[in-house]
């Protein structure tokens, strides 16, 4: 039997507060995915301080590479290409990964593949199953909330995005008011399961024709409710607060996605991004998708929802196959985003 040809991608990710290096085989199998997270450091400040993040990245980057190469049991000669996140993200943080990837590509004469971090999040789902085009992806993270249409491979078109806060950002800000340490998403999710939606927070832009989101109104309504109660010395039920907040977020995300599924006839819906690890969101989506039996539902695996280099390797693999290459002058692009659909 002929052995399948092995194409190995070495991938770097350093766009925010995770330093990660991965080795991916044929775009779908993880040989190594080392992630060094700075959560313990950044929680001192209640959020990510860019200069602190950049300093940790340069401390960790060669250690992560050494571990990844060792776990994957490969040498540089086995590699086909080096993929790297070049945006969006914190510029100082991105530059460490971009420079490191260039050094490895240059040293070993390997092609350098530029990867959009958001394409990476979408391709985290590749580890759960094949991506079927045309597809629609809902990306929900600390920095982004967007609906992306994928007509074919390596083609990403935004159809809607948040006009203010990202969903994950709203979680962190609400968490701060509730005294929950950064990052607050997981704890609010857990609390929400013990409470009920009693506060009826607003569902922003749900009835508008577009596919855009807004979470700053919800955040303000939440903060006002808490502050008002404090002034009256009233005790609010934390679980009900969390449940009410989360229910509003979920309804808006599902409402807009369902609307998009009715307009764009896709074969698959992909749910990805850090907030896609939210169990309330995953359960609600699984139920909603029963109304769309013709659409396959692919969720990024729980352990790959957060930032990691495995997803960059998966997206980098299809980009590499598609002939995308970067020169040695590749720069970080902190505000990189997909094109809007025409």
């Amino acid at each position: 039997m002929k052995k399948e040809k092995r194409d190995l991608i070495l991938a770097f990710e350093s766009s925010c507060d995770e330093t990660s290096v991965a080795v991916i085989e044929n775009g779908k199998r993880i040989l190594a995915n080392v992630v060094a997270t700075q959560i313990n450091s950044q929680k001192r400040f209640g959020g990510v301080v860019p200069e602190v993040a950049s300093r940790h990245h340069i401390e960790q980057i060669t250690i992560c590479l050494a571990d990844a190469m060792q776990r994957a049991q490969i040498t540089y000669d086995d590699l086909s290409a080096v993929a790297v996140t070049y945006g969006p993200g914190l510029v100082g943080a991105l530059l460490v990964g971009v420079t490191a990837a260039k050094a490895v590509a240059f040293a070993h004469h390997l092609p350098l593949i530029p990867v959009n971090h958001m394409a990476g999040h979408i391709y985290a789902a590749r580890f759960a199953g094949e991506i079927k085009f045309p597809a629609l992806a809902l990306l929900v993270s600390g920095g982004h909330t967007e609906l992306v249409y994928l007509p074919k491979v390596n083609c990403y078109q935004i159809i809607g995005e948040t006009r203010d806060d990202a969903a994950g950002e709203a979680y962190d800000k609400v968490g701060r008011v509730m005294g929950i340490p950064y990052p607050a998403g997981k704890q609010i999710d857990e609390l929400a399961h013990q409470g009920k939606d009693t506060f009826n927070f607003p569902r922003a832009m749900l009835n508008e024709e577009n596919f855009d989101f807004s979470f700053s109104g919800l955040k303000s309504a939440f903060i006002n409710t808490v502050h008002h109660a404090e002034q009256l010395h009233q005790e609010l039920d934390q679980a009900d607060l969390a449940a009410s907040f989360q229910q509003s977020v979920i309804e808006v995300l599902i409402g807009k996605t369902a609307k998009a599924l009715k307009k764009y006839f896709v074969k698959q819906l992909i749910l990805a991004g850090g907030v896609a690890a939210n169990t309330g969101l995953r359960t609600a989506f699984t139920q909603t998708m029963q109304q769309f039996p013709q659409v396959d539902f692919l969720q990024a695996p729980l352990n790959l929802c957060g930032d990691n280099a495995a997803m960059i390797g998966a997206a980098g693999y299809v980009a590499w196959k598609g002939g995308q290459r970067a020169d040695l002058n590749l720069n970080a692009v902190p505000s990189l985003e997909f094109d809007w659909i025409k």
Partner: peptide, 19 residues
């Protein structure tokens, strides 16, 4: 400059390590 130091530093560190 912190950013400048990190660009040169990452390049040097990674070149030395990988080679």
């Amino acid at each position: 400059s912190y950013t400048g130091l990190r660009i040169g530093g990452t390049a040097a560190k990674m070149l030395a390590f990988t080679l």
